[in-house]
Amino acid sequence: MNVKNSSETLRNRAVGMIIGGMVQKDVAKTLEKPLRTIQRWWARNRRGQDLGHKVGAGRPKTITREVKIVISKSLGKICQSTRKIAIKLKRKGYGISKSTVHRYLKETIGATAYKRPKIPKLTEKQRENRLNFCIERENWNLDEWKRVLWSDESPYELFHPSSAQNDRVWSTDSSKVPPREVIKKPAKSDGLGHYELSWPLRITFRSS
């Protein structure tokens, strides 16, 4: 325990016990303080220094009110890694490391770096087609579904997916994390620079 966590009365008592003839080790044991703390108090007394709290002692805090606001505003936003937040703060004149940002987000705010959930990237027409498909076949029985042959294609990938490891969102609630739209069946190429978008699903009906 350091000097700041002890009252001035306790420090004066420790010094008085030493002046009274008690060794510093026994003083530390009696007051349940580290020996190093008792030695520091005694040294200050011998130098004639006040045993009260030093005003402004210690390293200034790097997490100021302005820094807290900047970090808090990053919650729920995409592409806001601790490294990018630290760079943003340094450009504003605050010497904050990404480790400091990470500790504040984790330990003070209680936030977690979530991976963004994936959802299909669909047009309004595709959404409408999917809904109509389900509505039209809502009451189909097993025999009717047996007449459907499900098939698929293997198109070339055009839209390279982003790194899920780096694409994280800091938030205190996973439900507030914005999803990431992904194309289930990306555009395919014919090798000549022409592209066409393949349907997410193709079905073929067989006659009974």
Rank of each mutant, 00 (worst) to 15 (best):
M1S: 09
V3I: 09
V3H: 13
K4P: 04
N5A: 13
S6P: 02
E8Q: 09
T9E: 04
T9D: 11
L10K: 00
L10D: 03
R11T: 11
R11D: 00
R11H: 13
R13H: 07
A14F: 01
V15N: 01
V15I: 11
G16A: 10
G16K: 05
I19M: 03
G21P: 00
V23G: 14
Q24I: 06
Q24E: 14
Q24V: 04
V27W: 01
A28W: 01
K33S: 11
K33A: 08
P34C: 06
P34K: 00
T37S: 10
T37L: 10
A43T: 14
A43K: 15
R46C: 07
G48F: 04
Q49D: 09
D50I: 08
G56K: 12
G56I: 01
A57S: 11
A57H: 09
R59V: 00
K61D: 14
K61E: 12
T64E: 10
K68L: 08
I71L: 14
I71A: 02
K73F: 12
S74W: 01
G76I: 02
K77A: 11
I78N: 10
I78E: 13
S81K: 02
S81E: 00
R83H: 03
K84W: 04
I85T: 02
I87M: 07
K92H: 07
G93Q: 02
Y94H: 15
G95D: 08
S99Q: 15
T100D: 01
H102V: 05
Y104D: 03
K106N: 13
E107R: 09
T108M: 05
I109Y: 01
I109C: 10
A111K: 11
A111E: 01
T112P: 04
Y114P: 00
Y114A: 03
K115C: 05
K118C: 02
K118G: 10
I119K: 15
P120S: 08
P120Y: 10
L122K: 09
T123R: 06
E124N: 14
E124A: 11
E124M: 15
K125N: 11
Q126A: 06
R127C: 15
E136K: 12
N139C: 08
W145A: 00
R147V: 06
R147K: 15
R147F: 03
R147C: 04
V148E: 04
V148A: 01
L149P: 00
S151L: 06
S151C: 12
E153N: 11
E153K: 02
E153P: 01
S154L: 13
L158Q: 09
L158V: 08
H160D: 08
P161H: 01
S162V: 15
S163T: 07
A164E: 15
Q165D: 15
Q165I: 08
N166K: 07
N166H: 06
D167E: 03
R168L: 00
W170T: 10
S171W: 06
D173Q: 14
S174K: 10
S175T: 12
K176D: 08
V177R: 12
V177K: 10
P179N: 14
P179F: 11
P179V: 05
V182Y: 11
V182H: 04
S189K: 00
S189Q: 06
G191D: 01
Y195I: 05
Y195P: 04
E196H: 10
E196R: 13
L197C: 05
S198Q: 13
S198F: 11
W199C: 10
T204N: 03
